[in-house]
Design a protein around this nucleic acid. Structure first.
Lengths: 336, 336
DNA sequence: TTGAAAGCGCTAACAG
DNA sequence: CTGTTAGCGCTTTCAA
C-alpha cells in the first residue's frame, strides 16, 4: 500500500511544460520527439522521482507484468525435489525481474487457483502430472504457458526438459556391462522425466541383452523399502536404478542396514542428481539435471511468446553424468 | 495475457437491466440493495461468466492483492535453509490465496527490487540480515511489512520467530551436565536467530558454570572445518553446538573422517533442525523451528495490519527439542 | 514534432 | 433502494 501520494504523469507534464502525451512517449521511448524535449521530460521525471503507475498502465492493456510459476511438489521435505524447485524458481525469478516482471508463486492445485484475482501474463508449470489440472486451468483461460517437463497424457504446447532418455543410455553405457541384470525402483509414474528415463533404459537394455526388473515402491518406510530390496536380491540384480535422489538415499540407507555392501554386492544409480548425493558414502552415481538453465530458458521462451516471437516448441538439454563410487565407471565409451 | 474479450460490468448491467453501480454493489456485497435485485445481478453475472477486472479495481485504490516474500538465502544448495524457506513460503502462499491475494517471490536484493513495477500491498521478509537493505527498501516505500526473525541492528516493526533463546536453555538442560565444556561453531552472525541462540547459551553456561568456546567457520571446506574441530578437541570440548543443520552435517562428516566418535568422544547438537538430520548416523539432536506455522502467522499478521487491525508486534513460538543419538538425554528435567 | 481529447473498467460521491 | 456522473493514471487515436 503505497501511502505516499506519488507524482502522476500530469505533474511531470506540468513541470516540463509539455503535454501528458509527450511525457508518456518520452518515457516509453517512442521515436517521435525531439531529443531536446525528451531530455526536458526525463529531467523533470527524475527530479520528481516519477514512476509510472503499473496499474494504470495495465488498464491500457499492457498487462501487469506478472508471471506465475507452479510446481507439483508432493513432499516439502524431499530435499532433492526442493533443491530442483528452488533452483528453477530463483533463476526464473532473476530473469523475470530483469524484464520488469514479477514472479507469482502458485500452488499446484486448480481449486486454489480459482481464487486468484490478479491477471497473469504468463505461467511456467514445472513437472506437470498426467492430465495436469493446473495446465488445463491456464489453457482454458488462454494464458501463455511454458512447461518444464510435460503432461504425458497431453504433451501440447512449448516445453523444455533435461534429456533423461539420452542421459540414461549414456549412464548405462558407462556403468553397466551388457548382460548385467538391472532393477529399476520407481515411486511415482505420473511425471514425464521418469517415463523418459525408463524409455532410455528399456532401449539400452534390449539392445544390449540386459534383463530388467521393474519394481514399484508406494511408500518409503523401512518395511516397504526392505521388501523391494529383497526382491532385487532374490532376482540377483547387479545394478539398481532409483527414480530420484530421495529414493536412492533411502535405498542406500536400507542396503547398509541390511548389510548389503554398495558397490561390492550391488551397484546403485540415481536417475536425477541432487546435492546431497555426493555426500553420502558411498556417493551415488547420477545424471545431473539443469534446473537453473531450465528456469532461465523457460522464462526466455515465455517472454518470446508474449512478444509474439514464435520459438521452437521443445528443447532437450543434454545431461551430464556424475560417476561416483556407488556405481563406478566400468567401460570406457568408444568413439565411433 | 487474457486474449478473450471478457465481459465488463456494463455487459452485466445491461443483461440484468440495472446500472453499473448496482452491479458493483451487488457483487461486492454492499448492503443497500434489495435481495431481488441482488439475485438478478448475480444470475446475469454467472450467465456471462463475469469476473471483475482486478486491474481496474486496483485503479480505484483497492490495491491489487499482492503480497511479496523475500528470504536471505545465501546458498541454494543448503538443504536446511531451503527446507525452511519452502515450508514458510508454501504455507504463506495458501493463506494468501485463500484471501484472494497472490504471493510474489522476491529476491533478497535491493537493486533487483528497484526493477519491480507492480505495487505490492504487503511484504514478508524472512531471516533479515543486519541493516537489511530489503527491509529498508520497503519501509521507504511505506509498504506494510512483517518479518520472520528480525534485523538485529534495527529491530523495528512487527516480527515473529521461534524462541531460540528459550529453546537453547531447554536443550542444554536436557543434554549437558553443568560444568561440561561447550564449543559453539558459528558460520554467519548476521541473523537474529543465531544471536538469540547464543544469548540463551551464554546465560545457561554462566548460570551453570560451563566454559564456552566460540569458534567461527567462514567456509565449509574440509580444511577449514578440520581446523575448527582441532581447536575444539585441543580445548577438550565435550559438546559441540552447531549454528544450523548444514554446519552440523559438515561437522559430523569431518568428525567421522578424523576418527572422532560421536557421541562417545564428543557430543554434537544443532541449533536448528531440518529433515535430513534425523537420517544421519548418528542422528543429530536439535531444536525444531516451525516454518509452516510462522508462514501462516506472518500472513495473518500482515492481513490484520492491512485491514487496520493492530496486532501484537512480536510473537515467539516455543521450540520443541528433538533428542537424538548425537547428544542423548543426560538429565531428566525436574519440574519446579 | 507536439497536443487535446477519449476512454480502459471500475467504484465513490452525490442525487433522486 | 437505485441511477447518474466523475474520475483513478495512463496510452491511444486524431488533429494540428
Amino acid at each position: 500500500m503505497e501511502n505516499v501520494k506519488r507524482p502522476t504523469i500530469r505533474d511531470v507534464a506540468a513541470a516540463a511544460g509539455v503535454s501528458q502525451t509527450t511525457v508518456s512517449d518520452a518515457l516509453s521511448g517512442k521515436g517521435r520527439l525531439s531529443d531536446e524535449t525528451r531530455k526536458k521530460v526525463h529531467d523533470a521525471a527524475t527530479k520528481l522521482d516519477y514512476q509510472p503507475d503499473a496499474i494504470a498502465r495495465g488498464m491500457r492493456g499492457q498487462g501487469l507484468g506478472l508471471v506465475g510459476i507452479s510446481i507439483a511438489l508432493e513432499n516439502e521435505a524431499n530435499p532433492s525435489a526442493v533443491w530442483y524447485w528452488i533452483s528453477i524458481a530463483s533463476h526464473a525469478s532473476e530473469a523475470i525481474l530483469n524484464a520488469g516482471f514479477a514472479l507469482v508463486q502458485l500452488p499446484h492445485n486448480a481449486t486454489l487457483l480459482t481464487k486468484l484475482r490478479v491477471p497473469l501474463d504468463g505461467v511456467i508449470v514445472v513437472d506437470p502430472l498426467e492430465n495436469d489440472e493446473v495446465i488445463r486451468h491456464f489453457r482454458r483461460k488462454k494464458i501463455e504457458l511454458v512447461t518444464i517437463g510435460r503432461d504425458i497424457k497431453r504433451p501440447q504446447g512449448p516445453w523444455l526438459d533435461d534429456d533423461y532418455e539420452g542421459g540414461m543410455t549414456d549412464l548405462l553405457d558407462q556403468t553397466v556391462v551388457p548382460g548385467e541384470r538391472i532393477s529399476v525402483v520407481t515411486f511415482g509414474l505420473h511425471k514425464s522425466y521418469i517415463a523418459d528415463a525408463l524409455r532410455g533404459l528399456d532401449s539400452w537394455a534390449s539392445a544390449s541383452g540386459s534383463p530388467v526388473q521393474q519394481l514399484h515402491c508406494d511408500q518409503l518406510d523401512d518395511h516397504v523399502v526392505d521388501a523391494v530390496l529383497h526382491k532385487t536380491m532374490a532376482w540377483h540384480a547387479q545394478v539398481i536404478v532409483a527414480q530420484n535422489g530421495r529414493i536412492a538415499t533411502r535405498l542406500l540407507q536400507r542396503l547398509k542396514a541390511l548389510g548389503i555392501r554398495v558397490p561390492e554386492m550391488v551397484r546403485l544409480v540415481s536417475v536425477a542428481d541432487s546435492p546431497e548425493l555426493q555426500f553420502l558414502s558411498p556417493a551415488i552415481t547420477a545424471m545431473q539435471p539443469h534446473p537453473a538453465e531450465l528456469g532461465a530458458m523457460a522464462t526466455k521462451v515465455l517472454f518470446d511468446r508474449l512478444n509474439g516471437i514464435g520459438t521452437e516448441e521443445r528443447k532437450l538439454l543434454p545431461m551430464d553424468i556424475f560417476i561416483r563410487s556407488s556405481a563406478p565407471l566400468c567401460r570406457v565409451p568408444v568413439p565411433d
